[in-house]
Amino acid sequence: MILDQFRLDDRVAVVTGAGRGLGAAIARGFAEAGADVVIAARTESDLRQVAEQVAATGRTAHVVVADLADPAAISGLADAAVQRFGRLDIVVNNVGGALPRPLLDTSPDDLAEAFAFNVGTAHALVRAAVPKMLATAGTGSIVNITSTMGRLPGRAFAAYATAKAALAHYTRSAAMDLSPRIRVNGIAPGSILTSALDIVAGNEPMRTQMEQATPLQRLGDPADIAAAALFLAAPASSFLTGKILEVDGGLIAPNLTIPLPDL
């Protein structure tokens, strides 16, 4: 049955930044498809809530409270998966981000920090996870969460966009290094209604403007990204590696412009 190709029965996934937003939706979606999950973030109360939602599906979530900007903390998640569940099949590198800032106010340190948080964290977990995947499952799937801003230029996003573009190319490069046993793909979300867009959700004119600038005439839901992550993690995508799925409502230009003055 074709739907069986979207099952993750008895597989084990690590999802970073899983206390809310995209990471939480992905963890819940994986559990609904049959997986146990290691969920990691800084806020324990958020993680406990997600763990309860996972338990309601009949699966188990192992909570790890950690500062995921620390490469040592993030690399330890692979060990946590094997110690708790005995195997590791899937990694979702979701943690990341950087605040918008005008280009001339963006220091070299700002750029380095954005790269470290968005690319360095992913690499740390990949390096730790791949040996565990090969030893316990024999194969694996890695899903990196990039951003539509990694391919669409916009003012004030130099650090964030550059880091996400680097993560997209890291995905393609890692896929070549880790083939054929480990698949590496990415998702480039557009504007998704998570807490990062609270200011938009509460501002009707701004939300309407963004929706009208999106070909599908709506903003994304975290479930849209969870569904894409499930596809990339599951056997359904077994002939896919080194690719970035653009889950963005059809954007060909940013749908939100930060009103910075010309120089």
Rank of each mutant, 00 (worst) to 15 (best):
A78M: 03
L88G: 02
V63T: 12
A137L: 13
R84A: 10
T139G: 06
P131S: 01
G96I: 08
A72R: 15
T121Y: 01
A124N: 01
L104F: 05
D79L: 08
A81M: 14
S75K: 13
A69M: 14
A128H: 04
P131N: 02
V91Q: 03
P131T: 04
S147L: 14
D89A: 02
S107T: 13
Q83Y: 10
P131M: 02
T146W: 14
V143Q: 08
P71D: 13
R127D: 07
F115I: 10
G138Y: 07
S147G: 14
L103E: 00
K132Y: 03
G76C: 09
A116K: 02
D110Y: 12
K132G: 00
V92W: 03
V65A: 04
D67V: 05
S75P: 04
A116D: 09
L134T: 08
L68S: 14
A66D: 09
A112D: 03
D109H: 03
D105R: 00
A112I: 01
P102N: 05
N144D: 13
F85I: 06
A98W: 09
A137M: 11
T146E: 14
S141Y: 02
H62K: 14
D89W: 01
D70I: 15
L88M: 01
L125N: 12
P71F: 15
A116S: 10
L88I: 01
P100Q: 00
G138H: 04
V130I: 06
A116W: 02
L77I: 11
P100N: 01
S75T: 11
F115Q: 07
A124C: 06
R101H: 03
Q83E: 14
I145N: 14
T60D: 08
I90P: 02
A72M: 13
Q83N: 11
A129K: 08
S75I: 09
S107H: 02
G96T: 08
N94D: 04
S141N: 07
D70P: 15
D110C: 07
G120H: 03
V143I: 15
L99M: 10
L99D: 12
S141L: 09
L134I: 08
N93M: 00
R87T: 06
G97W: 10
M133N: 05
L103D: 00
R84P: 07
G96S: 09
L104M: 04
A61H: 13
V64F: 04
N93Q: 00
I90F: 03
D89G: 03
M149Y: 14
A124L: 06
A80G: 12
Q83V: 13
E113P: 00
L134P: 03
L111T: 01
A66L: 08
L125K: 11
A128V: 03
H62G: 07
G138F: 10
D79P: 04
H62W: 15
F85V: 06
A80F: 12
D67H: 12
F117N: 11
I90M: 04
M133Y: 09
N144Q: 10
G76D: 15
T121I: 06
D70Y: 15
S75F: 05
R84I: 13
D67R: 11
